[in-house]
Structures are given as structure tokens and as C-alpha cells.
Design a protein around this nucleic acid. Structure first.
Lengths: 343, 343
DNA sequence: ATGAAAGCGCTAACAG
DNA sequence: CTGTTAGCGCTTTCAT
């Protein structure tokens, strides 16, 4: 059933030229006679010749493939609703450039290192787009230090690496400032795991917004959690157990914000009357809650676009003007803060 | 910065053997002397040798890679919240087998055919997992007929192809029967685009459930829509415009169910009192609506697992017992029908 | 038990 | 303008 594949040799033989000429002809090299080129092209079209990219890759030492790697921790983006937008953004650009996308993950930390190594030395991909994992993750440093072409989707602590990152601190600030403007002044914060840079930055944004108003930072108002719905609910319970009073809450992601909101409502507290809530990420669900959730929106699809473009530029040895690309975040005001409602 | 890669030749030279012997040694071939093998292994480990899979692929005519292809139509799974579970299920199995995953899509129909062709003749992947597109899509038939190893994630109209599919009709029946048992008898159905097999099957399940109760099928109760939130809302408006009365609704996916529910609520009708609603897919959002949404759950992750396992089995020329694998669907009863509430 | 050699499909340097 | 040749990294006969 499976017919033998047409190779360049076949084309050359049938067109009555050498493989070298056939190759040049098909690549549109001006050195080859127009008529010869046309003959070769004709034959190639007739036989529906498609070059074997494996052979080409071996020769060229590049694969026209980039890998998207992300660690499969429990807090991982892979399970996040907005992961799809990122993928779409990357994919969009790659298709334009006829690149392939290899999606790679691994489940346990032991395999992880090996998996990275494979991609790196294998030459299965020409470059990597890397989703941030815990800042403790040694594998990431290893990739970064290897000098392999990479675009990191977060903040990195040195400047020698290409990134496309969100303005996390700025976003968090926007969120908290919004709550302050609405007259709330006991603002709780549910942070993500603090071994994630993103959690650290969002917490820092929270602190800065308070500091700008000369409000003191009260550690009792901050609960570290795990980016899940249940984690958000648990944080609310924990605050209650400790008897901490608050009239507003900024959660480091929407899932936790929603979990918290549900828990508050179940406990008979009204959102936004008793507690105003702002989340972070603007997942689709956020606009469908009752009340709809005010949140910080990140252009994930744009991030995907930019990352792919940047990586391809690097691979093509084009000048890349900026090492760091910071994309802006935006406050989406909805009902959960009691401010004016916009969808 | 980028050091030259260690090749088998390097290993052979340093170990003082030929590349042939080195290759055999590393593959654990019993013909090679134990001591020689150990030397070679030692050198390989010391230099952190990782075989170049491109070279290996060229030789072996296989790539240890499978491609996940899906059409990027507006109704596409790529934008569906549950796409991630599928990806995770596939990925999980591939990692175990040291396979790579190529994710492929294309935006316009024109490119699509070319993209398929590339994957097919390119030998960039050894097999394909294919997400269903419109039944009108000619490209799909082409892939299927090409004889390329494939697992199709839906129902196919001939038996000569491997599938992993959901029991769509059965699921739809469960949904409608549940509504009937609750005493509803004017059940509307918002279907997906009817050029999708899944829409046809869900509609058919709806009809069967009615037929089982000797209820007549009223075409006025059925509105074709597009799998989106807004489409669900539009369907409700359309029913209202036509003055169609109904006390229940089965939507062909959760997004439309939620859109419809929102629209009904906005129009002042109560769910479930005035209209009971069942969706389909069990996306995360479903359990977070007010009221929470009764729906049909599909084990997407399991489908991913099974599809990957099946494809790898085919590639390894193992006997695959069943062409079609049908995974069961399950009714998740929540609040939107007014029955007993289970989370 | 090991090595020499061929070849997977392609491209590029070099001749002619 | 076109053909010859070599070689990317690997595996696999076939000799030895």
C-alpha cells in the first residue's frame, strides 16, 4: 500500500540530469538553465515530489523545528486554561515560516533532565521556547547556560538571555491600585508558590501598590497557595481560621480567585460587597462567574507570536534588537470589585 | 560557545574501535566482547554522547515521532478548553516510549492540504493522530486513503481505519433521558454545525431518546449553532423569536449550554425552574457556573492515552485487536436540571 | 569478535 | 551550465 517515496534521484533520472542539477533547479538557483529548470520542476510536480526533510536536515545540520518545553509540575501551565492561547500564538508564526513544533514535557523530575538533554544534543530542534518552572529548577539553568538558542517566557535573573515576559509587577500593581481606589484598605493576597518567579513578582507588585499609599504591609494578609481552585478556597479558610479581617483580595491567578470567591460565597459573604476580588490571567471562565471576575489580562497569544518570531530571528542570525521583550498587562474591570461593570 | 557535537566517530576513535563496533556495543549487541563494550560505554558516558537522531532516522527510515494534526477551523478543538487534556494524555504515553510529538495545524484551507502532504511524504513523523474536522474536508479522506499509519479521534464511515472515539450518541441519549426522567417533555436541542460528525451523532442521540418514549421529534425545537458561547446565546434568542416554548434544553457542548443559560437568565427565566439544561464535554467551567451545569463527560485524557498507545502499537507492527475503540461517556448530574445535586 | 564499506536523501564545493 | 564527488551520522551486511 505504502508506495516507495519519490527521491531527488528519481527526479534527476527521469529529467535526465544529475541529482546536483536537480537540487539546484528545484531551489531556483540562477546558475541552472531556465529550460532545464522547467523540465525538472515539471517532473517534480508530476511525481508530486516532496523533499525528505530528514536528509536535508542531516546535511544542513538544522531541522526547521522548534521545541516548546515546559515542566509538568502540578502547577504547570499545561493544565492551565490559557496554555492553548500560547500554543496557538506560537503555531501561527511557525506555520508562516514552515517550521515544525515539537511539544515536550516530562512527568517526573528524574526524566526531565534526560528529556532536555535529548532535545539539546539530539538536534531534534534548532531552538527552544521555554516555559518557566520553579526558580529552583536546575535543568533550566543548564539549558540556558548551554548556549542553545532559546527564548524564555519569563523573567530571568541575568541579561544574557532572550525573553518574552509579562509585566507581572505592573499588573499586580494595577490590580491592587484598583482596589485601593475603590476605598478598600484591608487587601489580602493569595500568592502562588513562592519558588515561582511569577509569584514573587506579583507579591512584589502588591507590596509596591501598598507602599505607594504609605500603607503598611501586613504579612498576616498574605497566604501562599498553589494556583489551583481548591488552593484558593483553602486560603480563604486559612484566613478565617486566623481571624484575619479583610475587605478585598488580590489572587495571583484566576483559578485561585474563583476558588476563593466560591468559598466566600459558601460562607455567606457577599462578593463584592463584603470582599472585592481581583484575579489574574483573564481565563475565559472569569467572564462567566457570578459575579464576573475583575482580572489582569495577559496577551498570551501575542506572547506566543513574539516568542516564535524572536526565536526564528535568532536562528536566522538576524539582529535582534532587544534581549528582553516585556508585554503589557491590562486591568479588566468586571463585577467582582463593585466598580463599574465592563465585560 | 556552541561546541561541536560528539558523534559516534569520536567515540569509536577514542575507544580505539571502529564505528561499527561502537554502534553495536552501544546497542548492547551480544556479538561484541564484553570488555570492548564496557570501554565504549565508558567513553560514551564520559563524553556525554547522545546519538544524533536525525542520522539515525535517515538510516532507519523512521523518526520516533508522531504528529497530532487538527484543522484550525473556527470550531476547532484547539480553542476548546479540553484540548489540553487530550494533549496531556497523548504526551504521557509518548514520553514512556521516547517518542516525540509534533503538533501541527494550519489556518487557511489552502495551506492545509500542503501541510498534510508535508507530514505525509516528508517522513517527519511515523504516524498521525487526527482530530476530526468537517465531514466535508477532503484532506482527511486523502490522509486516510494514503495508508499512512493513523488513529482517528472520531467515527469514520468505513471500517478500515483505527479510531478512538467517544460514544456520542449514547452520551446524548443519557442527557436527554435524564431530562425526560425529570418530567420535562419539551426539550430543545442546540446542535453543533451539522457538517461535523459529532453534531450529527449528538442530534441522533437526542432523536433516539425521544423515540424511545414515543415522543414526536419537533424540528422547531432544534437549532443549529456553532459550538461557541455566543452561538448558544443566539440559539436561545432564535427560539424566542420563533415563539417556541420549551422546558428543557440539551446543548451539543458546554460552551453553548453556558451561553444559552446566560441568555435565559438575562431574559429573566430561571434555570433550572423554567428551563433545565444539560451540556456536553464537562469542561472545568461547567462546575463553576451558577447553577452548576449538568453535562456529559468524556475521558479526553484517556482518549489521548489510548490513541497514542494504539498508534505506537501499529508502528511496532503489533497485533491490534480492535480497529475501533469506543470509550464510554458519563452523565455528570449537577444543578442545572434541578435533579439531585452532585459535584 | 571486529572492521571495512555501503548507503539512507540531500546539498555544496569543485571541475569541467 | 552541468556532472562528479564527498559527506552529514548512523546502522548493517559482509568479510576477515
Amino acid at each position: 500500500m505504502h508506495k516507495r517515496h519519490i527521491t531527488l534521484k528519481d527526479i534527476a533520472r527521469i529529467a535526465g540530469v544529475s541529482t546536483a542539477t536537480a537540487s539546484l533547479a528545484l531551489s531556483g538557483d540562477p546558475r541552472v538553465n531556465v529550460k532545464t529548470r522547467q523540465t525538472v520542476e515539471e517532473v517534480a510536480r508530476r511525481l508530486q515530489y516532496v523533499p525528505n526533510e530528514i536528509g536535508r536536515s542531516l546535511r544542513a545540520k538544522k531541522t526547521e523545528t522548534i521545541a516548546l518545553i515546559f515542566p509538568n509540575t502540578p502547577h504547570n501551565a499545561f493544565t492551565h486554561p490559557y496554555f492553548v492561547q500560547l500554543l496557538e500564538g506560537i503555531s501561527e508564526v511557525l506555520v508562516q515560516h514552515s517550521f515544525h513544533l515539537l511539544v515536550s514535557t516530562s512527568h517526573n523530575e528524574t526524566d526531565e533532565s534526560a528529556a532536555y538533554d535529548k532535545i539539546l544534543r539530539n538536534r531534534r530542534a534548532d531552538g527552544i521556547i521555554l516555559w518557566p518552572a520553579s526558580i529552583k529548577d536546575r535543568n533550566i539553568s543548564k539549558i540556558v547556560e548551554s548556549g542553545f538558542p532559546i527564548v524564555y517566557l519569563g523573567k530571568w535573573h541575568h541579561d544574557e538571555i532572550f525573553t518574552v515576559e509579562r509585566n507581572e509587577q505592573g499588573g499586580a500593581r494595577l490590580a491592587v491600585e484598583h482596589l485601593l481606589k475603590l476605598g478598600r484598605n484591608r487587601i489580602a493576597h493569595i500568592s502562588g508558590p513562592l519558588d515561582f518567579q511569577v509569584s514573587i513578582d506579583r507579591l512584589e507588585g502588591y507590596r509596591q501598590a501598598l507602599a505607594d499609599r504609605k500603607l503598611i504591609y501586613d504579612p498576616a494578609l498574605v497566604v501562599e497557595s498553589d494556583f489551583t481552585l481548591e488552593g484558593g478556597a483553602a486560603a480563604v479558610r486559612k484566613l478565617a481560621e486566623h481571624g484575619v479581617a479583610y475587605d478585598a483580595m488580590f489572587a495571583a491567578n484566576d483559578l485561585m480567585a474563583i476558588g476563593a470567591m466560591r468559598e466566600l460565597q459558601a460562607a455567606g459573604r457577599s462578593v463584592p460587597r463584603d470582599v472585592a476580588i481581583v484575579g489574574c490571567d483573564n481565563i475565559e471562565m472569569a467572564s462567566l462567574m457570578t459575579p464576573t471576575l475583575t482580572t489582569i489580562s495577559h496577551p498570551l497569544r501575542l506572547i506566543g507570536n513574539l516568542a516564535a518570531e524572536k526565536l526564528i530571528a535568532v536562528l536566522n542570525r538576524q539582529e535582534v534588537d532587544e534581549m528582553r521583550t516585556v508585554v503589557p498587562t491590562q486591568l479588566i474591570v468586571r463585577e467582582s470589585c463593585g466598580g463599574q461593570a465592563t465585560s
